[in-house]
Design a protein around this nucleic acid. Structure first.
Lengths: 233, 233
DNA sequence: AAATTCTAGTTGTATATACAACCATATACA
DNA sequence: TGTATATGGTTGTATATACAACTAGAATTT
């Protein structure tokens, strides 16, 4: 029913920041000052400040105080998700076509990326994903066999590589690179687009607790796919 | 020196999730169980669980317990930042060239996007940003005068539109769309690239507490710019 | 004058306690 | 049998308290 007190205090400060009354670098009331101002215990006042700190709005320094954060980069939580889930969520039919599925010897560059010895065996898959029979993603993936031994035995018509890997090697870390590229003739024909069409290319590297699991290159036709994100304080 | 107890408990649970001992949907020990197991007060055990909840690893339900979250989308915090800061951070020289800076009447579509009346006066700017004298971004921006009255009076060689807007109307919300496009002849010539080159296009809409501040279209040459992100649990 | 020490204020960690709200199950009753 | 009711366990909120670690500036000493 009634909103918790620490939320009230939190909103009080948040509103002042949004209104421009408190600008980056300014000092906000200390825990003790908030105690008196709102007649609450220090733990309650603390919770409000701590929460704002966790959200990146405040910087708190022992011995000094709490200050409005200077760098509040407009960042958007870009969810790079399971393409199958995404398609299903839109209520469309999903299918996949496997182009390649084999063991390969790691080139020196690939070995470095996956942190294995050059010449080591890697699993390599190339899959085209379809939404309503229209190709929407080209997925080229290298997998470290040590962390996903049964990769090649999976039926990727029923489970996506991403989903399988998340299951056998829980992901703890990932890095992405997003760029615009032109695709070559091979990929263009598989994606049913013209050669030299603009495409959104996502390069992704994923870690689990045990090490680097996989590197993937995902290519989307520019006119059929875009990434979106919404950011809120 | 010694790590806080709530961190120890937090890591204990986090490790089990990463190792696959606890999988999505599993129940984790309750606050009271952790109290006994680690000989700490409930508030300390609670803090560990609460922290994991805030990070999205756990879902906590009153009356039921705490469970490993099912949806852990690999999302990356994509920072769409001030281009000038980015360039400076790389240790390169930054400059800007103003192409357009004027008042315009809002078309019906523009009016709808900015939530103003059709035909209302808007500020319109087009700026090309350079890194080491090479164009890296085309910025086309529409601004709501009600929230940034002095927009046209700014010297955008010394302050970027983004930075100015953040100052006069603190941002509280933003949405982004990222896609790959081909640019027309006008933009291509300003960016010193060939017509029909692939480009990364970011469409951004920003809010402050008072309403929609601005809509911007940022275009980057595909071969000179990419977005990157790193995600960690 | 310079270096050192002290002090007040701040955040960080941790405990013990109390009550409210909620859920699932077991029990009692009609 | 079916419906209430009670019970135990869970998370959520809030307080009062204690001590540690850190910072800046004032006071003291050299």
């Amino acid at each position: 029913m009634s909103t918790p007190r620490f939320i009230i205090i939190k909103n009080f400060i948040e509103d002042k920041i949004n209104a421009g009354e408190l600008t980056p670098g300014d000092r906000v009331p200390s825990e003790n000052e908030l105690c008196q101002q709102f007649s609450v215990s220090r733990m309650t006042a603390r919770r409000a400040l701590q929460s704002l700190n966790d959200e990146g709005l405040l910087i708190r320094t022992p011995g000094l105080g709490s200050f409005v954060a200077k760098h509040r980069p407009i960042s958007t939580l870009l969810e790079v998700r399971n393409i199958a889930d995404e398609v299903h969520e839109r209520g469309n039919s999903y299918s996949a076509k496997i182009i390649t599925m084999a063991e390969v010897e790691a080139s020196s560059q690939q070995a470095a990326m996956l942190n294995v010895a050059a010449g080591a065996i890697l699993y390599h898959s190339v899959i085209v994903h379809f939404e309503e029979e229209i190709p929407v993603q080209w997925e080229d993936r290298l997998v470290n066999p040590a962390l996903a031994a049964d990769y090649l035995k999976q039926d990727f018509n029923t489970i996506t590589p991403n989903a399988y890997l998340s299951k056998v090697a829980p992901l703890t870390e990932a890095s992405h690179k997003i760029e615009a590229t032109l695709v070559d003739q091979t990929i263009a024909s598989k994606l049913h687009i013209e050669t030299r069409s603009p495409c959104l290319q996502i390069s992704r590297r994923t870690w689990s607790a045990a090490g680097i699991v996989s590197i993937a290159t995902l290519i989307h036709p520019g006119d059929r796919y875009c990434l979106g994100g919404h950011w809120k304080i």
